[in-house]
Simulated scan of single mutants.
Amino acid sequence: MLIASSNRLARLHYGPNGFRVLAPGDHVLCAVSGVPIALEELRYWSVARQEPYATAALSVQAALDHKA
């Protein structure tokens, strides 16, 4: 049986080489900007903070913000 996950927030566990779906969905929210990121387009995340980012620039911004 397939579960429809369209327009539903996924919950993921982020690893160094990929992510694992903990709760099905079709997108996550960027930890910095709050914009939705389709799982197929998700390329940037922090393993240490378990956060997704919409762009490389936002991932760098988050890393710099957490250093301070």
Rank of each mutant, 00 (worst) to 15 (best):
E40A: 14
G18T: 15
H66V: 00
W45P: 00
V47R: 10
G18F: 14
L39T: 01
R43M: 10
D65C: 07
A10N: 07
G18R: 12
H13G: 02
V28I: 14
E41M: 13
L29D: 10
Q61N: 00
Y14G: 11
L39S: 10
A38P: 00
L39F: 08
L29P: 00
A4I: 01
S46G: 11
A56W: 08
A54H: 13
A23D: 11
D65Q: 13
P16A: 15
A54D: 13
L64W: 03
V60I: 09
Y14M: 10
S46T: 13
H13E: 14
A62N: 09
P52W: 15
R20K: 12
L22I: 12
S33A: 06
V21K: 03
L12C: 10
E51C: 10
W45Q: 06
L42N: 07
V21Q: 03
D65L: 15
A48G: 05
L58H: 05
L42Y: 01
G34F: 08
R20F: 02
A10Y: 08
E51Y: 02
V35W: 00
P24G: 10
M1P: 00
P24W: 00
R43G: 04
R43F: 08
L22W: 02
I37S: 12
A57E: 09
V28H: 10
L22Y: 00
A63N: 03
A63Y: 05
L58P: 01
I3Q: 04
A54F: 10
L58F: 09
A68E: 07
R20E: 15
H27L: 07
N17D: 15
G34H: 11
A62F: 11
L42P: 06
L42G: 06
A63P: 00
V35Q: 09
A54P: 01
R49H: 12
I3F: 02
S46H: 06
A63I: 02
L42E: 08
G25N: 05
A31R: 02
A48N: 09
P24S: 11
V60K: 01
C30V: 04
L22K: 08
D65Y: 07
A31Q: 04
Q61Y: 02
L2E: 14
C30D: 12
S5Q: 13
P36T: 06
V32A: 01
T55F: 06
W45T: 05
A38L: 04
G15N: 11
A68T: 10
S59C: 04
Y53G: 10
Y53E: 11
A54W: 07
G34C: 14
D26S: 12
W45G: 06
C30S: 10
G25E: 05
H66R: 01
N7L: 04
L12T: 03
V35H: 06
H27R: 14
L64E: 13
N7W: 01
V21I: 14
R11N: 11
